[in-house]
């Protein structure tokens, strides 16, 4: 469920891109730093979590799967 929502947010943010759970978002330059800022805002709102600075790392935003794991961790506290 989380994954579908995450993919939807990314597709809305970067229209015309084909994104799957294992797409390398940063390495393949699907998103840049400006998109990352917007993505953090969208994810915080959509999943009602606080994504702090310390969580915004390349590893946590490497793929949509990594983002889903981050959201899960933040929800679990």
């Amino acid at each position: 469920m989380n994954m579908d929502k995450i993919l939807e947010i990314i597709r809305e943010l970067v229209p015309g891109t084909d994104v799957a759970a294992d797409t390398l978002l940063i390495e393949d330059e699907i998103i840049d730093s400006f998109d990352l800022v917007a993505l953090v805002g969208e994810l915080s709102d959509a999943f009602d979590v606080q994504i702090g600075v310390e969580s915004v790392t390349p590893e946590n935003f490497e793929t949509p799967s990594a983002i889903a794991s981050l959201i899960e961790r933040l929800r679990e506290g």
């Binding site: 800022v37 953090v40 805002g41 969208e42 709102d45 606080q50 994504i51 702090g52 600075v53």
Partner: peptide, 28 residues
């Protein structure tokens, strides 16, 4: 500022209203 939820909403509004590169870059 940039990773706060309030800024996220403001940024989304700008992106939607301005569109294009300006909408993407201007908030940051």
């Amino acid at each position: 500022i940039t990773f706060s939820r309030r800024f996220g909403r403001f940024s989304k509004k700008l992106r939607t209203n301005l569109g294009g590169r300006a909408g993407k870059v201007l908030p940051t």
